[in-house]
Simulated scan of single mutants.
Amino acid sequence: MTTGVLPQGDVALLQSDIAQELLHKDIPARMAYTASDGTPRVLPINHWWTGTELVMATFTGAAKVRALRRSPAVAITIDTDDAPPHVLLLRGDAVVTDVDGIADEYELTMRRGMPAADADAYFDRLRADGATMHRIAVRPTWVGVLDFETRFPGAAPSTITGSD
């Protein structure tokens, strides 16, 4: 999908080739949020795209859950490190749900990057230990895409972007 005419912030950018590539790539997202003490935090976290939500999971007791329930606004970046980099920027509110056991999306995410036998052993251990999780879902309300070929950061010099 061509995204050149869509402005940054338009959620239709989720349908762009770059957004779809990054949403389905086996690389961590970086989620920024406000910690319980009011200071900013950013952390790498695995994710699963459902088609409408970016879902992340964490084990019961994680400090980020208390913070997200208090202040759900998040900003998320998924990006590559090759040149030119591809960058997906998302904003929205995190909805935290308690899960009795393993969050489905966590298992899908982890199995994507593990040999099947290793994943089976890992999840068997978690289930045997009675692991419980929190599902963190973000439905993007603002989307930005950068490819550094046709879409640049807004403050890029016009000599780079070709605009006046």
Rank of each mutant, 00 (worst) to 15 (best):
Q8K: 07
D79Y: 03
A117Q: 14
T2M: 11
T161M: 07
P115Q: 12
V74I: 09
T60Y: 12
T159W: 15
A137G: 10
A103S: 14
G61W: 05
W142Y: 12
P140Y: 07
G130E: 04
F152R: 05
H86L: 15
Y33A: 05
P140L: 07
L14Q: 08
H134S: 13
A75Q: 14
R111S: 07
I102C: 07
D104S: 11
P153V: 06
P153D: 05
G61C: 09
A19P: 04
M1A: 15
L126I: 02
A131P: 00
A116M: 04
R69D: 04
V55Q: 08
T141F: 05
A73S: 13
G144C: 09
E105R: 06
P72V: 12
G92Q: 01
G9I: 12
R70C: 02
S163Q: 14
G144D: 03
L23T: 09
D129R: 14
G154P: 02
A83E: 14
P157T: 06
A63M: 06
A116L: 12
P85C: 06
R125G: 08
L88W: 02
V95G: 06
S16V: 05
A103P: 06
S71D: 14
R69V: 05
V65Y: 01
G144P: 08
L14M: 10
L88C: 06
A119E: 07
H47F: 03
W142D: 00
S158W: 10
A156C: 01
V65E: 00
G101V: 12
A156H: 04
P7H: 07
Y122I: 03
P157F: 10
T80G: 02
I160S: 03
L23A: 07
M56E: 04
Y106E: 11
A35W: 01
V11E: 05
G113N: 05
D124G: 03
D100Q: 11
P115E: 14
K64T: 02
V5L: 13
V143C: 04
D98S: 13
D129G: 07
P44M: 04
V65G: 00
A32N: 08
G92Y: 04
E105M: 09
A156D: 06
H24N: 15
P72K: 10
R125W: 11
A128Y: 03
W142N: 00
Q15Y: 06
M31D: 02
A57R: 03
D124Q: 15
I78K: 00
P84V: 11
Q8N: 08
S71Y: 05
Y122H: 15
I78A: 01
V138L: 09
P140F: 07
E107A: 14
L22G: 03
R151T: 07
G154M: 09
R127K: 15
A62P: 00
P157C: 06
V87Q: 02
M133E: 15
L22F: 06
V95M: 10
T3K: 13
A12P: 00
R91V: 00
G101Q: 11
A19L: 05
M31E: 01
V74G: 01
G51P: 04
L6C: 09
I18P: 01
A137H: 09
V95H: 14
V96Y: 05
M133K: 00
A137C: 10
I160C: 00
T34V: 15
R30A: 09
A83G: 00
P85S: 10
Q15F: 07
F59P: 00
M114T: 05
A35L: 10
T77Q: 11
L43T: 14
E107L: 11
V95R: 14
D124C: 03
H47Q: 13
G101I: 13
